Simulated assay, not measured.
Amino acid sequence: MSTDYQQARTALGARLRELRFSCPGGRLTGQQLAQRLGWQGSKVSKLENGRQTATPEDLRAWADATDQPDTYAELVSRLAGFESHIRSWRRALANGFKPLHEGLSAEIERSSDMWIWEESVVPGMVQTPEYARHVIQRYAALLGGAGGVEDAVRSRAQRQEWLYRPGRTLHVLMWEAALRSLICPPSVLAAQLDRLVGVIGMDTVELGVVPFAASVKIVPANGFWVLDDRLVVAEDWHAEMWLDDADNVALYAKVWRTLRESAVYGADAHHVINAARRALRPR
């Protein structure tokens, strides 16, 4: 998670704690406030310690429950301010790719299930190092975050150790475009496709491909990751967004399930991958 985003979320949590302490009717404990709000006590703690992103509705309820409704405008303004920080790749890459990769790697480590959708690139969890290097270099050229490319490649490769641990499952979907996009030399893409064929046989990986010819119920758009049922990491050209509110997590999970309805698996997925592999051969 980008440093500026987390710092801003922590600062909002500290402000929420101040309101709990300065309640006109007397300081409230976290449990007392949770009872007023009808929440679990853990939610109060997560919001105050910057471990969960508040929604505007959460902030309205907090301001009212602490008998300080006039503070809502300030709180929602703070929320809008740090949400804009999420949208800055350039800020996140100010110190190179390594810190950015380390933040996501930490979240992956504490996850037991991941659901990934990628529309035009092979997902990082199943990338070869050489393919990963070309992808990261392309982003570096676009966004100006050239520092730490090799560290990022190593970090991405190390993440894949997650796939070999008991109790972990990767549910990955790709559009066929991801198998054919020449973001790297053909020889590198060929090796990457060979890697995908091997992944199909792993008991910790469920790999599906949405063929070009498949009928789809939703536009195959931007890539995203759902980690357990607690966090979504979604990417766009300008941003990596971390979403941990229940409504957004549920929405992205629904999008993933809808895309899955158009996917092929097993031997059928193998056939689509091999067709892309054959297309790379000189004629």
Rank of each mutant, 00 (worst) to 15 (best):
A34V: 03
L47V: 11
E74Y: 10
G81R: 15
L59M: 02
S42Y: 06
G41I: 07
G25V: 00
G50H: 03
A63Q: 07
W39K: 08
C23L: 09
N49F: 11
R51L: 15
L33Y: 02
W39N: 13
T55A: 04
L59G: 00
G41F: 01
S42H: 12
Q31R: 11
C23Q: 12
P56T: 12
L59V: 04
R27Q: 12
F82P: 02
E48W: 02
Q40V: 12
A34W: 02
L79P: 10
G25H: 01
W62M: 10
L16G: 06
R51K: 15
T71Q: 15
V76Y: 07
T29F: 12
Q40R: 15
A14I: 06
P56N: 12
A61L: 08
F82H: 07
T29K: 10
F21I: 10
R17H: 13
Q40P: 11
Y72A: 09
G13W: 00
L33P: 05
R17K: 14
Q35A: 13
R36E: 03
A14M: 11
A8N: 05
L59P: 03
T55I: 07
A80N: 13
A8Q: 05
Q32E: 14
G81I: 07
C23M: 01
R20G: 04
R36D: 02
K46H: 13
F21D: 06
R9A: 11
K46S: 14
G30D: 07
A65L: 02
F21P: 00
T10R: 15
A73K: 14
A61V: 00
D67W: 03
A73D: 15
A65D: 01
L37M: 06
Q35K: 13
W62N: 11
L28A: 02
F21E: 13
R60I: 04
S22W: 00
A73C: 08
W62R: 07
Q32F: 02
G38M: 01
C23K: 06
R27K: 09
W62H: 13
A63G: 08
R20H: 04
D58W: 11
Q52E: 10
D58Y: 03
A73F: 00
F21A: 12
R78E: 12
G13L: 07
P69R: 04
A54Y: 10
G26Q: 04
R78S: 09
G25M: 00
G26S: 07
L37I: 06
Q35T: 08
A63R: 01
Q40C: 11
E57D: 11
Q40S: 14
A8S: 12
R78A: 09
G26W: 00
K43Q: 13
W62S: 05
T53P: 03
S42E: 12
A8Y: 02
S42T: 10
N49K: 15
A11F: 01
E48Y: 00
G26M: 01
P24R: 08
A61H: 06
W62D: 05
K43S: 13
S45T: 15
A63I: 04
E18A: 08
L75V: 05
